[in-house]
Write a protein that binds this DNA or RNA. Structure first.
Lengths: 249, 249
DNA sequence: TCCGTTAATTGACCCAGATCATTCATTTGC
DNA sequence: GCAAATGAATGATCTGGGTCAATTAACGGA
């Protein structure tokens, strides 16, 4: 059938060895909010970070856990989600190299409101809340950068809220695919491959619907030639048209 | 009928004169993020703020306008909303004295993603993006405080997302009423009066539903003795039970 | 390369909540 | 104190998408 073939994803072969001191330094250097700090200061900051290897599927912290550290993804993908009493999970974000999470820890909150789960094998760098706060207080421009990141995320969250409450599922799924292909997309001979394992359930959790509905909508997209997909992989073949569907919001 | 009577709200009689230099200073002093600055510095900051009087219902800035200033509410209530192409508005937040909005202006964004509308007669203090950024860079603890505020709002937005996608309308309306009575509630001989004019349409826009459904749900709450309500006013009479309904999320 | 596991698909049915429409109640402006 | 004007309530009906259930297909491991 059209749109089916062997798993096209690049198998991620990150060995725990990738979390070397060198790699850490490189990642920290690459962070937009540390970028213009002098090398020596980054080296000092690096000493305050601790590296953790996390198995795919493992939980980095759980909603309700005491919020004692803030993390930066050094390698791999981390899912940020919320649980609801009814058992339904909502996928809030997928973070990649250089993105931070657990931000509230540094700001006086006692517990994490959401859960962070490794989607792939990950290497994350963690720093104590206290230490990070000290960095922020010492380097105002770092604080301003971090503020910018959080403010941008707030705006994205507001977009999501408005979208979930005012547009039909089809548009939401289309929007999610557009966003994912922009964030995690890799060009491929057939289109844009979303370079991470993503199930229909994940799509459902991102768009506030059910696995079945997500599957139905995506089947339709596949029939319409907008995407190709298989088990946990998606290739977007007609981004403009998808964006158009998403736009009818 | 139970739950009906004359408008119980305290009529807000804020005269434009309330936006005096003294009042401004007082408001700025009261801001959590300026609180521990020396008086003289606040006085200097005060000089950089401009006061604007805004009529009830007037728009302070519109989605898409160039984001050139950041605001603080000195008096009154400001609604923050998003429009969608389908014409449906989503009410993201209602801000009161001491809260800020238009934050992205200070962080390099070109246009406002949402609309700010005065719900009551308002006095707002505005500062240029550039000036505010300078303050942040000079006073790291101000930046850390502001970051804390934005991070908290992000968490709230995430809660809203998870709620909208995983709980039925009844629970969402209950949650909205609980939140409103906590934020804007005033004790009253019958219960907690939500001290701001709020239509069924506003409730609908906060919970991602329609005016009719919001009305139906609230009628039921009224019949069950959880609230009293009339034209643009709400008194919560049984907060615990409402909270319980909201909890079944 | 085959087999077991688990995702994905698809169908049938149903219901929460949207839509449309109408009546009623409360303000506000004279 | 009366009359437009506008918000609220409520009834009737319809439908997007949820739920339940069964089948099919795609991986991954031995």
């Amino acid at each position: 059938m059209a749109g089916r073939r062997a798993v096209p994803q690049i198998v991620e072969s990150i060995s725990p060895a990738s979390c070397t001191v060198d790699h850490r330094l490189e990642v920290l250097h690459g962070l937009p909010f540390f970028q213009h700090l002098p090398h020596e200061q980054i080296a000092e900051i690096n000493r305050q970070f601790h590296a953790y290897d996390v198995e795919a599927g493992a939980t980095i912290y759980f909603s309700g856990d005491p919020a004692e550290r803030l993390y930066v993804v050094a390698h791999g993908r981390v899912k940020l989600l919320r649980h609801s009493a009814s058992g339904q999970d909502t996928l809030l974000d997928i973070l990649t190299t250089g993105e931070m999470f657990g931000t509230l820890a540094a700001l006086g909150d006692l517990t994490y409101p959401d859960t962070a789960e490794a989607q792939t094998f990950c290497c994350v760098l963690g720093i104590g809340a206290q230490e990070f706060q000290t960095i922020l207080e010492r380097s105002p421009d770092v604080a301003v950068h971090v503020l910018g990141i959080v403010a941008k995320r707030l705006q994205e969250a507001h977009s999501t809220i408005s979208q979930i409450s005012a547009t039909p599922v089809e548009a939401r799924v289309a929007a999610a695919l557009v966003k994912l292909s922009e964030k995690l997309g890799v060009e491929d001979e057939r289109g844009t491959l979303i370079q991470t394992r993503l199930s229909r359930q994940d799509i459902a959790a991102m768009t506030g619907t059910t696995t079945e509905t997500a599957s139905r909508v995506m089947s339709q997209f596949r029939r319409d030639g907008l995407i190709e997909s298989g088990r946990q992989w998606i290739v977007v073949t007609d981004l403009p048209r998808l964006a158009e569907i998403a736009e009818v919001a």
